[in-house]
């Protein structure tokens, strides 16, 4: 089989760059990451791409393929017949080199989220129905594609004001843990800036783990913020209930 694929890959660094074309032979079942590896081994040994598991578990190989935010290891070359495959780095984060971006901001924010604070000591008695919700969020592989596509971070450069969908999901998983006692509502409304999310759902669309980020994570958090700040009546009822 002499079938040939054309890739146009961004080559450059902090100072800028441009797309460069490569032609490589197709192999059945090939994913875009395989194609990039072929280029590395045969044409451009210094082509920078971040990857680890090549099994969609680690979330390292996030990029933009023909305009869509995707994992390189999960995107098959034969999804693009008769078209050039354009591969670019994530737009929202600064380029280090080629397809590798500086995602350190995300780790800074992760560090600022108050950790799990259980009231009791393990072993816990928790039922599956109690944890189903948070297990969905814990599927997150931290590929940061949601952070990349979120227009607040991407187009408004509002990284100081809003922490992005990944951090919302992390906080949702903690707030909804049946045994957690920490309160992150003030943080959510304050410096984490949940109000900046206008629920346009692109994070949910790009999530390779299929996490329903907006409906199951961010909106319930917004409702929790509303409980505390926009619903004095409900607050009173809840107080009496306790």
């Amino acid at each position: 089989m002499a079938e040939e694929i054309t890739l146009s890959v961004f080559r450059g660094d902090r100072s800028g760059g441009r797309e460069q074309e490569y032609k490589i032979p197709a192999v059945p079942g090939m994913v875009v990451l395989d194609a990039l590896h072929y280029i590395q081994a045969h044409q451009a040994p210094d082509l920078a791409v971040r990857w680890n598991c090549k099994a969609a578990h680690c979330g390292s190989c996030s990029a933009e393929i023909n305009g869509s935010a995707k994992l390189l290891c999960k995107t098959r070359v034969d999804d693009y017949t008769d078209e050039v495959i354009h591969v670019r780095p994530m737009h929202t984060f600064p380029v280090i080199k080629d397809l590798v971006t500086d995602v350190s901001w995300n780790y800074e924010k992760l560090r600022q989220i108050p950790a799990f604070q259980p009231a009791i000591k393990a072993p816990f008695t928790l039922h599956q129905r109690d944890v189903d919700r948070i297990q969905e969020f814990r599927k997150c592989i931290e590929c940061f594609l949601c952070q990349n596509i979120c227009h607040v971070l991407r187009d408004h450069s509002a990284k100081d004001a809003y922490w992005g969908p990944r951090m919302m999901i992390r906080m949702a998983e903690l707030q909804m843990h049946p045994l957690d006692t920490a309160d992150r509502i003030d943080l959510l409304k304050g410096s984490a800036g949940i109000g900046y999310c206008n629920i346009t759902k692109c994070c949910t669309v790009v999530c390779p783990q299929g996490i329903n980020i907006t409906d199951n994570g961010i909106i319930p958090l917004k409702e929790r913020v509303a409980d505390k700040y926009f619903d004095p009546l409900g607050g009173l009822v809840r107080k009496m209930h306790k």
Binding site: E64, S68, H151, Y196, V205, K222, A226, F230
Partner: peptide, 27 residues
Amino acid sequence: CGVPESRRKFYFGETRFPFIWTNLHRW
């Protein structure tokens, strides 16, 4: 998703008037 917006300096989402009112949805 991913369609570039004009880089408006002022985007406040639902943190200020008028869209902060969306928090009153339950009412």
